[in-house]
């Protein structure tokens, strides 16, 4: 292997000589680019587990309160609009596809297509947040708030029942924290897009795209469970 010649200067900024053996992104404490990539990916998976555990706390809260008051949750979930929820599901699934395609294209060195896919992902995320904005304001107009401020009125009096407040608190906290994740994702993919334009990525090295993609799919996964639990059943 070429490893005998790499021992001289394996630092990050060096090794332009033969691009394959010393990629500028290659860090000296890894054996190979492959190992470096796999380590980063394992680290990302560990982070994603902490994300899953974060949301699982809220899913447990949902489960406990639903087991305690199943009939209240069924009535309260009728306040949510399944069409808008379904639309957002499709939008998020589409953005997951564009993320997967952006990785597909960068692996084939089709950088321009990758950039388009990253831009489409940001667009889908923005559509998701706009829909969410209209959903939230429609709830607020009728006094469907989280916690103490909860006072349904103006045609929503049927939700003024004991324990309905718990459903809406859980709804706003869960979808709110999920929405924060979508906003963070929008920032990440905008950043990736600008880096793509600057030619930072190639099939040799695209770790940020891969890891951000994994993050985005987890955000999608959370919504896959939130949608039926909140809007449908």
């Amino acid at each position: 292997m070429a490893s005998t010649t790499t021992t001289a200067a394996p630092a990050v900024e060096h090794g332009h000589g033969d691009g394959h053996a010393h990629h500028p992104r290659f860090q000296h404490h890894f054996v190979s680019m492959e190992q470096q990539f796999d380590s980063a990916k394992l680290g990302m998976w560990l982070f994603l587990i902490t994300e899953i555990l974060l949301f699982s706390g809220m899913f447990v809260a949902y489960t406990v309160y639903r087991v305690w008051h199943p009939e209240v949750f069924e009535v309260a979930s009728e306040a949510l609009n399944p069409f808008l929820g379904g639309l957002n599901t499709v939008v998020l699934l589409a953005s997951s596809l564009t993320v997967a395609l952006s990785i597909h294209f960068v692996q084939k060195d089709q950088i321009q297509k990758m950039n388009w896919m990253l831009l489409l992902t940001v667009l889908c995320a923005a559509i998701f947040m706009v829909v969410k904005y209209f959903e939230y304001t429609a709830k607020f107009e009728h006094g469907l708030y989280a916690g103490e401020a909860f006072h349904p009125h103006a045609g929503y009096e049927q939700f003024n029942i004991p324990y309905a407040r718990q459903f809406f608190s859980i709804y706003f906290v869960m979808t709110g924290i999920h929405g924060v994740h979508v906003l963070i994702g929008m920032g990440m993919f905008t950043w990736l897009y600008t880096r793509g334009l600057r030619g930072h990525f190639s099939s040799e090295w695209y770790t940020p795209v891969e890891l951000s993609g994994l993050y985005w799919h987890i955000v999608d996964l959370i919504w896959i469970f939130l949608f039926p639990l909140m809007y449908l059943i």
């Binding site: 292997m1 070429a2 691009g19 394959h20 053996a21 680019m33 492959e34 990539f37 699934l93 589409a94 997951s96 596809l97 997967a100 395609l101 990785i103 597909h104 692996q107 084939k108 099939s203 040799e204």
Partner: peptide, 18 residues
């Protein structure tokens, strides 16, 4: 070497998944 051998998930698989 050089071709890092990451599995490229074929486009039809991604579209079918969607």
């Amino acid at each position: 070497d050089g071709d890092h051998g990451h599995h490229i998930i074929p486009m039809p698989v991604l579209l079918k998944t969607f």
